[in-house]
């Protein structure tokens, strides 16, 4: 059995107090508790402070392009659906640059767990407003206050076909580890939006802010009810942040609907299995 320490890579270079520490610790703990090892998971990282976890987490991984972590993960899952596949990305990366992939990945219900570090700013480029920034948020790129409303990513995921949507707070790792384990155990597209203070660039959405505005979902919340889930998700516009599993239903994952993957993974086929004559028949 692997321990959380087996997943420890390089010492993180995040700013002291950064919410990413909590997310990193939690992910390692969740993976170890579920019996995974660095050799049995594939993590596709985005680009940004969150993506820099690539060097701090031991795993088979891709540290690809800004916005494109999800399609790389989809490719991995199609080629080797036995591999536990995870996306680690930031809010600008996943909801901004990669927004199109987010929508379509959810539609496909690909069996991938997506952990979005939602700090409402672009940290690595020194603090411009992210799509998650609250309307009116002033930043270097939006000195007059951002005109767009904050993205409601959880509603987007739910309405586009994601089968697991949850929210966690980087300041509460004990709660977050349970949510992450639930997400990693879910079969299908799972999104965990993690509220994460950026201590360097975001002076508004601080630990204190979330302690005040976030709350744990009551046990009676009916997570299979799409309408109730949407109401919870939309509370973001009222500066209320429910924590926990907001939505979860069972549906076949994308790869489970491909008959050519019924017997084995693509990567385990060593040789072509076509009958040449059948292919050539089209050309005679």
């Amino acid at each position: 059995m692997a321990t959380p320490a087996d997943f420890n890579g390089y010492t993180p270079t995040w700013c002291p107090g950064c919410g990413n520490f909590g997310i990193g610790v939690t992910l390692r703990a969740a993976l170890a508790q579920l019996g995974f090892s660095p050799s049995s998971v594939f993590v596709s990282f985005g680009i940004g402070c969150s993506g820099n976890m690539n060097d701090f987490l031991n795993a088979y991984a891709s540290h690809g392009l800004h916005g494109r972590a999800l399609p790389v993960a989809i490719g991995m899952k199609l080629a080797n659906h036995m591999m536990k596949t995870i996306v680690v990305a930031g809010d600008g990366d996943f909801y901004g640059e990669g927004g199109n992939h987010f929508m379509h990945g959810a539609r496909g219900n690909h069996d991938i767990t997506v952990i979005v570090h939602d700090n409402r700013v672009y940290g690595l480029t020194t603090g411009q407003a992210a799509p998650t920034a609250r309307k009116g948020y002033k930043s270097k790129s939006t000195p007059g206050g951002i005109i767009e409303t904050e993205i409601d990513s959880m509603s987007l995921a739910i309405t586009q076909g994601a089968t697991f949507v949850a929210q966690a707070f980087a300041g509460n790792t004990i709660h977050m580890v349970e949510i992450m384990k639930a997400a990693l155990s879910h079969k299908g597209f799972s999104l965990v939006n993690v509220l994460q203070p950026c201590v360097t660039f975001n002076k508004i959405n601080t630990y204190q802010y979330y302690v005040k505005n976030a709350y744990k979902l009551e046990d009676v919340h009916d997570k299979a009810n799409i309408n109730k889930a949407l109401l919870k998700a939309q509370e973001v516009h009222a500066e209320k942040f429910p924590l926990g599993v907001i939505y979860q239903i069972e549906k076949p994952a994308f790869h489970e609907q491909l008959t050519q993957l019924e017997e084995s993974t693509l990567v385990s086929h060593q040789n072509s299995s076509y009958i040449l004559d059948e292919l050539l028949a089209d050309f005679r």
Binding site: G75, M76, K77, H101, L266
Partner: peptide, 18 residues
Amino acid sequence: EDEISVINTALGGSIAGV
């Protein structure tokens, strides 16, 4: 959904070994 997803999906498959 678009050509960016196209090539990154294929790169993911290639990393996986196919």
